[in-house]
């Protein structure tokens, strides 16, 4: 058993994809940066010195302390505090956690919906296919952020005021997910159309394998690579979209600040000299998006045999 486990590990280590990875410095940098940011977000409750959601731990007297390397800074608040005395470092860790939760959920939902629609469109064809693809075309003629704003706005108007805070996260997730399904649907559809015409699918149809089984067992596995690539690229976009929504005040409320909310809060202090409140979360966001993008770009090249 261990022997088999070892050889499987060896096979993985020697696989083309990992070989490509080891030879690509940008991918390694992307992986390390994104990996450590994601890891610290996951471990936020352990790593963070303070709990930003706990109002009792906040002391206004500690407001606007600069980071430790500046004059007046200290290691009690390594990256300084905001106007209400909240620790910026803890805020970033928790904000990162929230931003990632939202964007990963949105990407998963988007991929699920897009993949399902793409598969069904390719399989059923006819008017259903045409309808889905025209809908996709229409949506593509608007910027994704506009779609997200629209969904967000509609949801907020439909829902009663008192539920806004508790439903903020699902709404943001839904808004981002709806703005991104098109890419998955188009890609999966085109892959499914190609696979559908192949003889092995005909062979399966010939013996009466039902269409759902064919789609799940034969066609979907051929699309997983592309879905994965799209997902990674989409993750970077989703993080930005979330940040933008929150920055505009349409995303997460200040009581549960995501990275975007932190940047918005800090924005007010930018010109009064307390730059760290907004710049530090901003740098974190930029690092995260850049590293995920690097990974996505590399993955797209590595999984595309034509580019090799």
């Amino acid at each position: 058993m261990t022997d088999q486990g070892l050889s499987r590990w060896a096979a993985f280590w020697n696989s083309d994809i990992l070989y490509e990875f080891r030879r690509s410095p940008l991918a390694i940098v992307g992986f390390v940066v994104a990996g450590s940011l994601i890891l610290s977000a996951l471990l936020a409750p352990i790593l963070a010195p303070y709990d930003p959601y706990d109002a009792s731990g906040i002391d206004l007297m500690n407001g606007l302390i600069p980071p430790f390397w500046s004059d007046g800074g200290n290691m009690t608040f390594p990256l300084g505090t905001d106007n209400q005395g909240r620790d910026v470092f803890s805020g970033i860790l928790y904000g990162l956690r929230l931003s990632l939760t939202i964007s990963v959920s949105a990407v998963l939902l988007s991929a699920l919906v897009g993949t399902a629609l793409g598969l069904v469109a390719a399989w059923v064809g006819g008017w259903f296919d045409s309808a889905i693809m025209r809908l996709a075309d229409i949506q593509l003629s608007f910027p994704a952020i506009l779609i997200a704003l629209l969904v967000d706005g509609v949801a907020r108007n439909v829902l009663p005021q008192e539920q806004h805070a508790s439903l903020a996260m699902p709404i943001v997730i839904l808004a981002i997910a709806i703005s991104g399904w098109v890419q998955y649907a188009r890609t999966v559809r085109s892959i499914a159309m190609v696979e559908k015409g192949k003889d092995y699918v005909e062979a399966a149809r010939l013996i009466g394998v039902n269409p759902v089984t064919i789609a799940m067992r034969h066609i979907l596995p051929n699309a997983t690579g592309s879905i994965f690539v799209l997902g990674t690229v989409h993750l970077a976009i989703a993080i930005l979209t979330e940040a933008t929504l929150s920055f505009l005040g349409l995303g997460m409320p200040p009581t549960e600040p995501s990275i975007g909310t932190l940047i918005r809060i800090g924005n007010d202090f930018l010109f009064s000299g307390e730059w760290w409140i907004t710049i530090l979360p901003g740098v974190t966001l930029a690092l995260l998006v850049l590293s995920v993008n690097l990974l996505g770009d590399w993955l797209r090249d590595a999984l595309n045999p034509q580019l090799r």
Binding site: K198, D199, Y200, E202, A203, L206
Partner: peptide
Amino acid sequence: MVFQDPYSSM
């Protein structure tokens, strides 16, 4: 049925 292309038939 036996298909033409031994590459795409499985």
